[in-house]
Design a protein around this nucleic acid. Sequence first.
DNA 1: TTCAGTGAGTTCCATTATGGAACTTTGTAA
DNA 2: TTACAAAGTTCCATAATGGAACTCACTGAA
Lengths: 169, 169
Amino acid sequence: MERKKFSGSPCPIARSLDVLGDWWNPLILRECLYGNSRFDELQSWLGISRNILTRRLAELVEAELLSKQAYQEKPARFEYVLTEKGHDACLVLLALMPFGERWYFKKGQHPIELRDRETGELVKPLVIDANTGKPLDSKTLVPCPGPGFKAPKSIKERRFSEYYDSLVE
Amino acid sequence: MERKKFSGSPCPIARSLDVLGDWWNPLILRECLYGNSRFDELQSWLGISRNILTRRLAELVEAELLSKQAYQEKPARFEYVLTEKGHDACLVLLALMPFGERWYFKKGQHPIELRDRETGELVKPLVIDANTGKPLDSKTLVPCPGPGFKAPKSIKERRFSEYYDSLVE
DNA sequence: TTCAGTGAGTTCCATTATGGAACTTTGTAA
DNA sequence: TTACAAAGTTCCATAATGGAACTCACTGAA
């Protein structure tokens, strides 16, 4: 069976997972961000099988997170460059860093960290609520119908009115 | 072949992808965050096959993102509750929202949005650099050896010194 | 007391996807 | 003329996925 796709989903999380919900694609993006953006580099750094890498790169180019660019002709050689959309996706990867550091490494013992290329200053990704400026707390959230919400008939949507009710109450 | 695992990786992103690098696990967490945390609820909301759901829930409990709790006995009935680690992982999901909204929906036409349960105020996830307070820009970052860095011999690590050099230069 | 219904899974199966390894292709450098 | 490199392909055995049907424990109604 083919992997289930979420291209029709009304949820931005689900939609994003079509391309980011996988273990190789995020790592490929990470390497491109780090500057290892050629086929053989990606292959040996990640330890990914070459045939899979070929497929994933095609996916990422198709999804417009990467663009395939020749860095020389004769012989033709390529590199995969992050697009604007790709850079945007990298923010999600970066949100994984504090999670990984906190739960998989002893405090202060993570082997990698990020710095600003210019200043050399440490960079600590943090997810906040842009409206209040405060760190986001997932415990206080409720999903609600947004401006593009269209009420349909499946159970999935029946529930949305419940969310809505709970808000209006 | 079994899916490749990253439990030995020095990268917090890779480590996190062992459990989050997949399309169902994040969606299951999303549903638990939204309050749909029982087997049949998850199954019908997500449209996931029951056998897969069973496996994924076991994984998430094993990874301590969810805990399985009986909400009644006789007959035994369970719900899957987000742990602290699970809530932490939700922040990553929430970072997917602005990405998904921006790239998969017309501006201002996303069907779902988040609100604070108490105040009803809109919540907009945003990834910033905790040190400067400014929105994170992935184009300016360099990966560097962290405090727990141990230099080994594989090509993977050879490159780290390059990162390091480029910083020191 | 029997019977349909519910929640929480299992079992079975055909189809895909994954990972490992070997093999191409095109062009360059010795 | 031979060795080497980059960027893929091809082939294969094994695993994972998704769909559907089945189980099991209990309950509330007839």
